[in-house]
Simulated assay, not measured.
Amino acid sequence: MELLNYNAPGLLFPAISLLMLAYTNRFLGLTSASRGLVLQYRTKPDIRLLRQVESLRERLSLVRHTQAMGVTSLLFCTTCLFALFLDSQLTARFAFAGALLFMMASLVVSLREIYLSVRAINIEFDSLLRDAQADDHR
Rank of each mutant, 00 (worst) to 15 (best):
L50N: 05
R51Y: 03
Q52W: 03
V53Q: 09
E54T: 03
S55T: 08
S55D: 12
S55R: 09
L56C: 04
L56M: 08
L56W: 01
E58G: 05
L60G: 07
L60C: 11
L60S: 05
S61Q: 03
L62W: 03
L62A: 10
L62N: 05
V63L: 01
V63Q: 12
R64D: 01
H65W: 04
T66H: 02
T66G: 03
Q67D: 00
Q67C: 00
A68M: 09
A68R: 07
A68I: 09
A68C: 01
G70S: 10
G70N: 08
T72Y: 04
S73L: 08
L75R: 14
L75T: 13
L75C: 09
F76L: 06
F76Y: 14
T79C: 11
T79Q: 08
C80W: 06
C80L: 05
C80Q: 11
L81M: 15
L81N: 15
A83F: 11
L84S: 08
L86V: 08
D87E: 15
D87I: 02
S88W: 12
Q89N: 12
Q89E: 15
R93P: 01
A95E: 09
F96V: 04
F96Y: 15
A97Q: 10
A97V: 11
A97R: 09
G98L: 07
A99V: 09
A99L: 09
A99S: 15
L100A: 06
L101N: 07
F102W: 06
M103V: 00
M103H: 12
M104T: 11
M104Q: 07
A105N: 05
S106M: 02
S106Q: 03
S106I: 00
S106G: 07
S106F: 00
L107T: 01
L107C: 04
L107H: 02
